[in-house]
Write a protein that binds this DNA or RNA. Structure first.
Length: 287
DNA sequence: AGGATACCCTGACCGC
DNA sequence: TGCGGTCAGGGTATCC
């Protein structure tokens, strides 16, 4: 689920519940996810108040009034589920899902008033760390991240510098979190299609005009995806944000064999594998 | 140095 | 219905 737009959607969905909230206790149902939890995690978070939720790339940032910030990654299957008091124990259609998912409820935020926020992650590729807030960027997870794609840091000149001289395919370059941080497989495919740039193009071969188009495509696709996620936020408090915001708007991702949606293009969406991952593209209008 | 590959783990899905 | 194979939106270690 989570690339940058999904994490931003999670942040926006959680903010009304977590901003300013007192965490009465952090319940750990295991000692690790992808990595071991930091020492004394529960003690360092319990009885602390949350400041204002943030995000860096695909990481959710939860600053505490203790001067430390939780750095949370959803991996590939992570969810944050908001439960109101008593909701989890209710019977009915919802109950089945809750009990089935409860197996992978690894970390539970118990908030004042009985509300619970559950970090559920079947594949356990997620992570959770703590870092002093005044040295946040030194955290191992954040230290080598590249440009934040939303905001002013990503502009044609900056992207041109990042790509210059690289022979790696554009698909790999855009997936590299050290260059631009936050894009994943889906939005890389979508951005390259919108910019009409072939995923196999050596990164250093792009013309200035193509780089400009790519910057616009990246911004647009992320912004549109966040907007689509935002439209389902009202449901978020009851469920988990996995409602599938943007997939109906995919132009190429997971659409192998479909006609290319570019106006006037008669191409067919094709799939290829690059560094072990599926790339979806149109050979007619992406050059 | 930089790029490609193997791997961490579970669940969903497809064909037989 | 069960079973095996395949695939999945991420990131890191390791090899070349």
């Amino acid at each position: 689920m989570p690339e940058l737009p999904e994490v931003e959607t999670v942040r926006r969905g959680l903010a009304p519940h977590l901003d300013g909230a007192l965490i009465e206790a952090l319940v750990l149902n295991r000692a690790d996810l992808r990595f071991p939890f930091p020492p004394d995690l529960a003690r360092r978070v319990g009885a602390r108040r949350v400041l204002t939720l943030g995000r860096r790339a695909k990481y959710l940032l939860i600053p505490l009034d203790s001067g430390e910030t939780m750095i949370l990654h959803l991996g590939m299957s992570g969810r944050m589920i908001v439960e109101r008091d008593g909701e989890a124990g209710q019977t009915g259609a919802f109950h089945h899902d809750v009990t089935r998912l409860a197996q992978h409820d690894h970390v539970i935020f118990r908030l004042e008033g009985g509300k619970r926020i559950v970090f559920n992650d079947p594949r356990r590729f997620g992570s959770l760390d703590l870092q002093p807030s005044d040295r946040l960027e030194e955290a191992p997870a954040l230290a080598s991240l590249g440009l934040e794609p939303l905001g002013n840091a990503l502009h044609p000149g900056a992207l041109a510098t990042l790509l210059a001289g690289r022979r790696t395919p554009m698909k790999a370059a855009l997936l590299d979190q050290r260059l631009i941080a936050g894009l994943g497989n889906i939005y890389v495919c979508e951005a390259l299609h919108r910019a009409h740039v072939a995923p196999t193009r050596p990164a250093g071969s792009l013309k200035r005009r193509e780089i400009e188009a790519l910057v616009i495509a990246i911004r647009d696709v992320l912004a549109e995806a966040i907007d689509a996620g935002g439209s389902t936020l009202r449901d978020f408090r009851h469920e988990d944000g996995s409602l599938g915001y943007f997939q109906h708007a995919f132009r190429v991702y997971d659409r192998e064999g479909a006609p290319c949606p570019t106006p006037g293009c008669r191409g067919i969406v094709r799939r290829l594998v690059q560094s072990g991952r599926s790339t979806f593209h149109c050979v007619e209008c992406q050059r």
